[in-house]
Amino acid sequence: MRQINRKLNRRQFLGSLGVSATALGAGALLIQPEKRAGASTAGAKKYAMVIDTNRCTCCHGCTIACLSENNVPDGKYRSWVKKIAKGRYPDTSFHFLPRLCNQCEDAPCLNLCPTGATYRTEEDGVVHVDREICVGCHVCIDACPYGARFFNPITNTADKCDFCYHRITAGVEPACVTACTGRARIFGDLNDPQSEIIKYLNAHSTQTIRADLDTRPKVHYVAADAAILGADYSAL
């Protein structure tokens, strides 16, 4: 639905492109694409993920599933896993931190995208990139405090995890969730009190990455090591 709307808009303004080149003034501002499909937010979903780092084994099943499902170009990642080694022999420890876009409720990437190509579907809170509008300015890639974005050299636009929107809207869980060998990833709707994710959140204490930035991430972590989540977020 929404996609189609956007496309029509695009065609409209493509037609007006020649004109707009000369009419760069305020008038042109009026043909801004209509704000995201006016779906009412009542009864809206709020998709989120819990990642239990206790369960993560750093197997990278998620990484590969995501690459394959989303046809991510070589060397780029929508999902990845950091492995952090701490301590001295024999008191060593490893900490695994699976990463993906946090689908922030107050998303710096969205706030700073000059074109509005980064947008949120209000009906479920997922943050997307509209490849038809994105000019590929890289601003959002720097704006995301979590390194969740990359420049896609095939589409020449910004790209990132969109919670596998094509799957979740078809009733299938995200690829990294179904692939996860440790069952470390739990996906669901925070607005549905019966959902597995709500139960998991209620039963565990969770953290988000860099809560200090107040981006309100929707990816929550169980038992992530302080060294990974703390102020020295260089480990992300």
Binding site: N70, D74, R131, P153, H166
Partner: peptide, 25 residues
């Protein structure tokens, strides 16, 4: 080279990645 808009940068000697995600059904 691949891509829908303009030729992609050369991605080495193995290419994976495509403009669209896999279809669900």
């Amino acid at each position: 080279t691949a891509g829908c808009m303009k030729p992609a940068e050369k991605t080495g000697d193995w290419i994976s990645g495509a403009p669209e995600v896999d279809p669900v059904d």
